[in-house]
Amino acid sequence: MDDKEDITRRGFIKGAVAGAASLAATNCSGGGGLGSLEAFFQSHFKEMDKEELQRTLKRLEREYSEKYGKDFVVKADKPIEGTLFGYGLDISRCIGCRRCVYACVEENNQSRDPQIHWITVLRFKKGEKWLELEEADKYYEAEKVPEDGYFYVPVSCQQCEKAPCTKVCPVQATWKEPDGIIVIDYNWCIGCRYCMAACPYGARHFNLTDPGVPAEETNPNTHYLGNRPRPRGVVEKCTFCIQRTRNGRYPACAEVCPAGARKFGNLLDPNSEIRYLIEKKRVFRLKEDLNTLPKFFYFISL
């Protein structure tokens, strides 16, 4: 109870200080002091030595813990040897309930206001055209889903092997990890949004302002390249829940899907679920003509 009161009291002071502070802050990182100076001169993630990485992670943990009033863990788990992640989505099973969208938001500390969703569920009309994106509707509202005469295709980052987004980034702030996940160093991104122009799947999202995540809804178990709270003015995207999957767990969207339409696994393991479905089912990938080689496979099991 005390905590709660403390939070609201602090919230009030914060509100009062916010005006003055935001006026004073020239830009972006919000706040001043030594921490932000350190952040300003911070190296690119791949260039950090062990010592700097540890220092940075500690600094971020401190920052987030102070900001949200609870203990944050910022890890930088390395890829597991011999893994290349792949995702499978059964569009014959997806019912378009959007559980995945919101599970993702909660797991990955996405901004509630302004709203950012890493997963977009598209609704298509059955029988007319196949995946004609221009006919797709992502704002469908229904009393109950699935609706008769429609099918649903959730789209998020396709984790392309030949990713157009990493190719265009002028500062190498986004790259493909050895386990196939496309990640972003939020402390390196300059916010030019070229990657958003380059992404054929609308998977990248821009923090239009300081992300608004209620402190009590934050997920404190984070990864540097994944779900840690983002600053404003940077691009973010799905990382296959890097903080979970690098520890062997399923991504949040796969765990929440009530229809069991979402499948995840190691493409290099011949006994994995993902390999089974690629070999046994009819599989397709979005916009294959663009030769981006997504590791996100849509399939039909009916």
Binding site: N27, F40, V171, I190, G191, R193, F206, V234
Partner: peptide, 15 residues
């Protein structure tokens, strides 16, 4: 114009 379009203009040195 390009600088005005950047989310983090203070990081242009990354380039």
């Amino acid at each position: 114009f390009v600088t005005a379009d950047l989310g983090h203009p203070e990081r242009v040195w990354h380039m």
